[in-house]
């Protein structure tokens, strides 16, 4: 039952495990496994919507291709790069916290939260653009699509708003989580390394989901 933990624990630590655990190593292994089980269920949570999208995209390839062309590929691409970068800063925060460098941890965490916020801001700009072009079939607003297959394009945009909205919600939770970690870092909370690394796992998963959302939605179109 003793295998290595994903969290590099330091033998010289003075921290005590929570009362239900025998050792800090056991606690860290449990925390890591718990997060991974949660992430597995998150994969299936988004997976259900990816599934529905896949069915419709294979049924209406032309309509989805046309509708995808109305998304802002530039902003979408920039946002993807931002999220990938935020994963890098999160990993650097992990390294810093393991090295017990609180100052560096705080900086990297702050940067991660900032990148997440920029992502959300750009996403907001995109949504506003789509609302203006009457491509948002929400709340009974008119949906105007200048090409054929209006109804199925509407289906595409239903998925676009549902998927990106759900992802944005997860990212918002991620930003709050990272900010909480930042506060923990500034206060030098106990078990800080485990907390930051496990929060990081969630952050990376949100990034990973976007890595699939981006090609499915933005790259379905015929460009060039």
């Amino acid at each position: 039952m003793t295998y290595q933990s994903a969290i590099p624990t330091r033998p010289d630590t003075l921290e005590q495990p929570a009362s239900q655990f025998d050792s800090l190593a056991q606690q860290h292994q449990a925390d890591t496994l718990g997060m991974w089980v949660f992430l597995a269920s998150e994969i299936l949570f988004f997976g259900g919507m990816f599934m529905a999208y896949t069915v419709y995209r294979t049924a209406f390839p032309a309509a989805f291709e046309a509708a995808s062309g109305h998304l802002n590929l530039g902003l979408g691409g920039i946002n993807t790069a931002i999220l990938l970068t935020s994963s890098l800063t999160m990993t650097l925060a992990d390294d810093a916290v393991v090295a017990r460098n609180r100052r560096a941890t705080a900086i990297w965490l702050a940067l991660t939260a900032l990148l997440g916020t920029i992502f959300l801001a750009i996403k907001g700009i995109e949504w506003r653009e789509e609302f203006r072009e009457q491509l948002a079939p929400l709340f009974g607003r008119p949906f105007v699509f200048p090409e054929p297959h209006t109804d199925q394009a509407r289906l595409f945009f239903s998925f676009y708003f549902a998927l990106t909205g759900l992802h944005a919600l997860h990212l918002l939770i991620g930003v709050v989580l990272v900010l909480v970690m930042l506060i923990f870092t500034l206060r030098d909370a106990p078990h800080l390394d485990a907390k930051v690394i496990i929060a990081g796992l969630y952050w990376h998963l949100v990034d990973l989901i976007w890595v699939f959302v981006f090609p499915l939605l933005y790259l379905a179109a015929r460009h060039g």
Binding site: A52, V55, Y56, A59, F60, A63, P137, L138, F139, G140, D151, Q152, R154, L155, F157, S158, F159, F161, A162
Partner: peptide, 16 residues
Amino acid sequence: LGIGIFDPKMGGDPVL
């Protein structure tokens, strides 16, 4: 929101 994911009018499939 009034979107139609399973609405047959837009091509949605209730069987899905």
